[in-house]
């Protein structure tokens, strides 16, 4: 496994004039995609704001049922993974192909750790019956407590789905990077998945205080 990875030259797709046009197109397309991602999540944030305004005490009460230490741990994990992602892009830009693969593997591992921590949190909520309305099964001082957990599971669930998609994309990047597809003149997929990954990270950075740190 120690042998050097050989660069595989990238060919510009037939309908582009040059690689610069190709890269810029991909980047603009990705930003448009991130724009729609933000609007997609915005619906959830609006729902959160409205129900928090309707039931302020319930939200404070409910957030005490979440483990802020686990949330904080996950925040740190995701920030680290964003860092390793950036380093993977940087490594490709300076032709350190092996290093690029290693950083990608690190990013993937952080993402996996995030999901494991999330899994423990979910297990604990489920065992206490803190679930959306149809499955809610816990003694509670507030009759609308299930709304908080409905929102909690929808928001973190959709975010978790995005993490899983990101992990799939990172595996694809690892395979391509091992074959030497990314180097100083071509690292478009790395950059694009990187942008996506930072957005996923950013959404969590909003979710964490909104759900865990109220009151």
């Amino acid at each position: 496994m120690n042998k050097e990875i050989k660069i595989k030259k990238h060919e510009v797709a037939h309908h582009f004039d040059n690689s610069e046009q190709e890269f810029n197109s991909a980047k603009l397309g990705m930003w448009a995609f991130l724009g729609q991602e933000i609007l997609f999540f915005s619906g959830l944030f609006v729902a959160y704001i409205i129900f928090r305004m309707m039931h302020p005490e319930m939200f404070i009460y409910a957030s005490k049922h979440l483990d802020w230490k686990m949330g904080a741990l996950n925040t740190v994990i995701l920030i680290l993974s964003s860092f390793t992602m950036v380093m993977a892009v940087r490594s490709a830009q300076v032709n350190k192909l092996k290093q690029c693969v290693n950083y990608l593997i690190a990013t993937f591992s952080f993402a996996g750790m995030f999901m494991v921590v999330k899994g423990f949190e979910y297990a604990s909520k489920i065992s206490h019956g803190y679930l959306p309305a149809k499955f809610f099964n816990a003694e509670s001082a507030h009759e609308s407590l299930h709304i908080f957990f409905g929102i909690y599971f929808t928001m973190t669930g959709l975010h978790g789905l995005h993490v899983l998609v990101g992990m799939g994309l990172i595996i694809w990047l690892i395979i391509k990077a091992k074959k030497g597809h990314f180097y100083e003149d071509y690292y478009t997929p790395l950059e694009m998945v990187g942008l996506y990954w930072h957005l996923v990270d950013l959404i969590w950075i909003f979710l964490f205080p909104l759900l865990y740190l109220i009151g």
Binding site: F40, A133, K134, S144, H146, F153, T154
Partner: peptide, 26 residues
């Protein structure tokens, strides 16, 4: 690009509401 995702999340929330009951529309 900017409007359709809002429909997407709306319909998704409707589906989740119908299957699990999150208590935001019903």
């Amino acid at each position: 690009v900017l409007a359709t995702p809002v429909l997407a999340i709306t319909l998704l929330l409707l589906i989740v509401e119908k299957t699990m009951g999150i208590g935001i529309f019903d």
